[in-house]
């Protein structure tokens, strides 16, 4: 009980500190400190309440138990990470985004295809595409190839739609300018329309990072070799070993955030000129 009360007191104190900090000048340090403090508070509150109220570990293990499990099973977690993220998600992401990009460039010269493909692409992007996982597992087998295939299908349409849209982003005046130089199609594509499309292309790339990881993990629910993050989660849930499940979730969260973060960083470098990045 004391644990729980202490945790709640900590929460109240930290929140008051955050309110105080956010009233002051918004320095770079505070911008980082405030969310960090909030995150720490959640962890303390979780730990305190679970310990203090004697919550059974098969319902919610405390963060300390998850951390201990994480530390003691790094080889397994690494093996699962390689299987699901590197082999499944990453290869599917590269193939899917790459082919969507190439198709977008190809249909760029045909307004007819654009008019036809864009609504279809938008439609498919809103569908529960993940449902195709059991079919692809059937076609490509249990190993990572089927996971990569699911990822390809999932990231393809968001990427296609974003790239096609991005390529229409240059304004009339800029295109007229290219015309006064009598620039040919490839010159105006390379020098004007592709750079102007970059913010949209990166939007597609960023959305796809999350989709890729989801696709690779969920596809394992429909069949996998005896390794992989999705496989581990389902089997450990079955054994009620929730600390291991949470450890896998931590891996997934770290991988997901890092993947997204890297794309966002590249975006920042490439589209430094865009008003949202200045």
């Amino acid at each position: 009980m004391i644990w729980a009360i202490a945790a709640i007191l900590f929460w109240v104190g930290a929140w008051a500190l955050n309110v105080y900090l956010s009233r002051g000048k918004l320095t770079k340090r505070n911008k980082f400190l405030i969310p960090l403090l909030f995150g720490v508070t959640i962890l303390v509150l979780w730990e305190g309440l679970v310990t203090g109220l004697n919550v059974s570990p098969i319902i919610l293990p405390p963060p300390s138990a998850v951390a201990a499990k994480f530390a003691s099973s790094i080889p397994i977690l690494w093996q699962d990470f390689v299987q699901t993220f590197v082999k499944g998600a990453l290869s599917g992401y590269i193939i899917g985004c790459g082919s969507a990009f190439i198709l977008a460039i190809l249909i760029d010269r045909s307004p007819f295809l654009q008019r036809g493909l864009l609504p279809v692409g938008n439609f498919v992007a809103a569908l529960p595409v993940i449902g195709i996982a059991p079919i692809l597992v059937m076609w490509f087998g249990f190993d990572w190839q089927s996971k990569a295939a699911v990822v390809v299908v999932m990231v393809f349409f968001p990427m296609l739609v974003n790239t096609v849209q991005g390529l229409t982003q240059s304004d009339h005046m800029q295109r007229d300018l290219m015309k006064t130089y009598s620039a040919n199609y490839w010159q105006s594509l390379l020098k004007l329309r592709l750079p102007a499309a970059m913010p949209f292309i990166f939007n597609g790339l960023k959305i796809s990072t999350t989709l890729a990881l989801i696709g690779a993990i969920v596809a394992e629910f429909f069949g996998s070799p005896i390794k992989g993050m999705g496989f581990r989660i389902t089997t450990e849930v079955g054994r009620l070993a929730l600390d291991m499940v949470w450890a896998e979730i931590v891996v997934a969260a770290l991988a997901g955030s890092a993947f997204y973060g890297i794309m966002a960083l590249i975006e920042k470098i490439v589209t430094f000129w865009h008003p949202s990045q200045r």
């Binding site: 929140w15 955050n18 309110v19 900090l21 956010s22 009233r23 918004l26 505070n30 911008k31 405030i34 969310p35 403090l37 909030f38 995150g39 993940i130 990072t209 999350t210 990881l213 989801i214 993990i217 969920v218 629910f221 993050m229 999705g230 989660i233 389902t234 849930v237 929730l242 499940v245 896998e248 979730i249 997934a252 969260a253 997901g256 955030s257 993947f259 997204y260 973060g261």
Partner: peptide, 26 residues
Amino acid sequence: SRAMDLSVMPWIIASQTIPILAVAPM
């Protein structure tokens, strides 16, 4: 609330980089 904005918003965005569907079975 500025405090809410500064504390929660980054986590809301971070929460989406987590493949939450993985947690569904749990």
